[in-house]
Design a protein around this nucleic acid. Structure first.
Lengths: 299, 299
DNA sequence: CAAAGTCCTGAATCATATG
DNA sequence: ACATATGATTCAGGACTTT
């Protein structure tokens, strides 16, 4: 039986460097930046980053007509004092990410309009070369019930190499065509927000993580842009969707996370067998997505 | 009969300021920045900007199977020496745009991953408050022939106020629901690239403008975020889609454009009567779009 | 005249090899 | 570094031609 200790390395304050064998298929419990600095150069084939979105939500509750309260993101890890502080944080982790990427590796970063433009510009300024934006269309977004904006139903993923000159990165176009709307393998993915049985909840029914990413999303990232056996890094792993998907798809992972609750949740997920099929969707989700995919058949 | 002189003001080098009556429903033929500086504060209810995308295309030809060559963007106006030069240009026009916006006005900027993140971050840094990203899904994008990336089928529009504190901007949610995918009025618009009879061509059949925007796009922008009689500015008007749509929808426009060929094309379009209905789409477009909208009915 | 087939093209950061 | 040659690669829509 696999135990917590088999999967988790607690990062201690000393300065030694990790070696690749030691951290393969492990969760490193510690601060992302501090841990990243101890990882050797050119270790990973793929990096997936889901940084704080810096939502800048007002510190008041948003109440629905029904009287219930919108359970938005109000976590300490999403608090920054200013754009400048957010940008400095972003540059810091991007610098380390770039260093630990193999020469032909690619990196994904996910965000919304609150932060993605800041991240994207900083990436370009640091020499990353954007290959695509991929638009995730959420089939079940939170509606804008005040009717003062468009309902924000999308997130944006930036996919990039570490440098303009990189050739020969991994791109599996068969999967790109399978996932994207239309025949062309477009940069548009339609899938629901993480919910149902996949969504981790504590005993009181509260969400363990406010922004848990769906397995289907990471499945698509991994299948389109890695090969079996590749090393994948997620330096802000949250509840570990990246590692769970990587394991199921026969890739190696390294996940970094500082929050103890999240680390424990991740371990639970990793020792629970899953199969990564569309059955990870509920039936109604599948039906909805089929509607989108029917577009392929329009003449 | 309406003549060129009735519609066009040629911007001369002198320093006098334009007044609102003088420029209403006019094309100002001159440099965007120089002209903008002569426009009074708080003149417009809406600004739409389609800046150069800074595509940084390689200096080599992309040849198709058939032997034809992809006629990509190779215009002087899309050339910048560096990100820094592009950013300085962006900041310059954004500063003037902010000044000529009425207090409750909003601004739209369109771009692709090549430039939109730079523009978006700069807007945030200058105090603009992003209300939404709107994703334009192009039904007929240029495929990625070589299969090394996702086909880039989207453009991104940023919609913002000039300041975080702005309340009471115009948002017509009925139209937002009509245009966006799903019942919720999502931030996703599906429409084709400008082509067919709408696409302006010279006598030899060559595109007048390499990136002419579809009328349907501007129709949506105008109907969702302005009222009848509003003043709309397009400071880089190209072949004038903004003005044509504004006129048809009973809004006032001011368009700035420096290129003589484009100005002449604009005048032609403005004196040609049009009706702005969905018949601007061909039937097959409509069918395709209906397929997307069927999602409304999914339970 | 309608239907089917051919050809061209669209905001594209699209490959590799050789000189 | 840049330019040129060669080769494997693509979908939707519109214009035009053939059946």
């Amino acid at each position: 039986m696999i135990e917590f200790e088999d999967l988790v390395i607690k990062d201690e304050g000393d300065a030694r460097e990790y070696n690749v064998e030691q951290i393969r298929d492990k969760i490193i419990w510690g601060d992302a930046l501090r841990v990243l600095k101890k990882i050797p150069d050119e270790t990973f084939d793929l990096v997936f980053v889901d940084p704080p979105y810096f939502l800048q939500l007002p510190n008041k509750k948003l109440v629905r007509w029904s009287g219930t309260i919108v359970d938005g993101v109000n976590d300490e890890w999403d608090k920054f004092r200013s754009f400048e502080e957010y940008d400095n944080f972003t540059r810091s982790w991007l610098k380390e990410v770039k260093r630990v990427m193999k020469p032909k590796a690619t990196v994904w970063v996910i965000g919304t309009y609150h932060n993605i433009h800041r991240v994207g510009k900083i990436m370009q300024d640091m020499g990353f070369w954007i290959l695509n934006d991929v638009i995730w269309i959420k089939t079940n977004p939170v509606p804008n019930f005040l009717g003062v904006r468009f309902t924000n139903a999308t997130e944006t993923l930036i996919w990039a190499t570490k440098d303009k000159k990189v050739k020969g990165y991994t791109f599996n176009k068969e999967y790109a065509k399978e996932f994207g709307i239309g025949k062309v393998g477009a940069n548009i993915w339609v899938l629901p927000i993480c919910g149902g049985k996949e969504r981790l909840r504590d005993k009181s029914g509260k969400k363990v993580h406010s922004t848990q990413k769906p397995l289907e999303l990471l499945k698509r990232v991994i299948l389109t842009t890695t090969k079996e056996g590749d090393m994948i890094l997620d330096p802000m792993a949250g509840t570990g969707t990246t590692g769970v998907a990587a394991k199921a798809l026969k890739r190696h992972y390294v996940m970094i996370e500082i929050n103890e609750t999240y680390v424990k949740a991740m371990v639970e997920r990793l020792i629970t067998p899953i199969r990564l099929t569309t059955s990870n969707f509920s039936y109604s989700y599948q039906k909805r997505i089929q509607q989108y995919l029917k577009l392929n058949e329009v003449k």
